[in-house]
Amino acid sequence: MSPKNMSEDTASEDKASRTDVRGVDIAKEKKKQAAQLKRVRRLRRCNVRMMILSVVILMALCVMLIARVRTLDGTVARLTAQVDSLMRLTAQQREMMEKMTEETQSAMGDKAVVGSLEKEAEGDEGTESGEPEEEEPDAAHKVYLTFDDGPSVNTEKILEILEKYDVKATFFVVGTACENNEEALKKIVEAGHTLGMHSCTHKYSELYGSVESFGEDLKRQQDYLYEVTGVKSNVFRFPGGSSNKVSDIDMKEFAQYLDSQDVRFFDWNISSGDGGSYLFPTETIIENCTSNISKYSTSVVLMHDSAGKSTTLEALPTIIEKIQAMEDTVILPITGGTKPVQHIQWQDGE
């Protein structure tokens, strides 16, 4: 074979080889493109499914939310109805309590005896007395503000209010309340107020168990107050009042025992109504303490000096202002010359 022919054959073979290579490359490229297209389609199907699933989940959540909202609407409506019902019930209870307070106060005023103690003007001769020996001024209406169950965290604030209005009052203190408030006892005496006794523990079962236990309680408190303040208290208020229904022993026996010890007891004929657990509104306390004063020549006003009586503390300035504005009316502490207000007639022959 001539060199020329050999060259032509080689060139043909090279050309065919290159054509085969290009064909293979094209086939590979098409295969690659087909695979990519398949992946793209698969991803699209997955995305569509995810979108459909998301829409379904969102719709389900919306349905659940709507159902929950409707349930809450029903709950809110029920709660609103219950609140309205409770408010009406509270208003009714308050109205009933105010009515009961008014009736009790009226009953006490009718029942109370003023000046039933024959030795009302005597008192102790010595200087050591819980009742300041002052001659009381003449007035058509004498008002005695009294505070039971103290001293407490409110005592100092009460004393500040009384000082501001230049008013003297009477504090019937409880022994257990005095233990951590001895400074308050001293301030009561130093400010010229009357220091009275209201038992050591205020526990009816112990106090009224017998005349002997009553006497022991009285002496223990009287001695304690004298030790702390240098004042011998000679005025007493029965826990629950002398007309209480708790004691199984006739309260006359306790009253007669007090008389044998030269101790006078004082009840009340006007009540603030703050003695229970219900916290009366300030306006009610003011009304209770001032509305009936004009009915009596002697008004002994019952209030309480204990930590929970915030509305009594709030009402006190207005109570004083209203009483001081009344014609021919004075506010006084209980003294040796004060006519006692007592719920029971306890002397023999009465």
Score class of each variant (00 low, 15 high):
Lys322Met: 15
Ser310Glu: 15
Tyr278Asn: 06
Ser299Trp: 05
Ser310Phe: 07
Glu283Phe: 03
Leu279Thr: 14
Lys322Ala: 14
Ala325Gly: 13
Thr298Lys: 07
Ser297His: 14
Gly308Phe: 06
Asn269Thr: 09
Glu287Lys: 13
Thr318Asp: 11
Glu321Asn: 05
Glu321Ala: 12
Pro281Asn: 13
Val301Met: 05
Met326Glu: 14
Met303Ile: 02
Leu302Lys: 01
Ile270Gly: 00
Glu327Ile: 03
Leu332Asn: 01
Asp267Thr: 10
Leu279Cys: 13
Asn292Val: 09
Pro333Tyr: 02
Gly276Met: 12
Gly273Pro: 01
Leu302Glu: 08
Ile334Tyr: 00
Ser294Asp: 15
Thr312Ala: 09
Met303Asp: 04
Val300Thr: 03
Ile270Phe: 01
Ala307Thr: 09
Pro333His: 01
Asp274Ala: 09
Ile319Glu: 01
Ala325Pro: 11
Leu316Cys: 05
Thr282Leu: 10
Ser306Gln: 13
Pro317Asp: 10
Glu314Lys: 13
Ala315Phe: 00
Val330Gln: 12
Thr298Pro: 04
Ile331His: 08
Pro340Met: 09
Glu287Gln: 14
Ser306Gly: 10
Glu283Thr: 10
Ser271Val: 14
Gly337Gln: 11
Glu283Ala: 15
Pro317Lys: 08
Val301Asn: 00
Ile331Lys: 04
Ser291Gln: 15
Gly308Leu: 08
Asn292Ser: 13
Ile293Tyr: 10
Glu314Phe: 06
Leu332Ala: 02
Ser299Ile: 02
Asp305Gln: 10
Gly336Glu: 04
Thr298Gln: 14
Ser272Gln: 04
Tyr296Arg: 07
Tyr278His: 12
Gly276Tyr: 09
Ile270Trp: 03
Ser277Ala: 10
Met303Trp: 02
Ile323Met: 14
Gly276Asn: 12
Lys339Thr: 01
Gly337Leu: 07
Ser294Lys: 13
Thr312Pro: 00
Cys289Glu: 06
Glu283Tyr: 06
Leu332Met: 14
Leu302Asn: 06
Leu302Tyr: 01
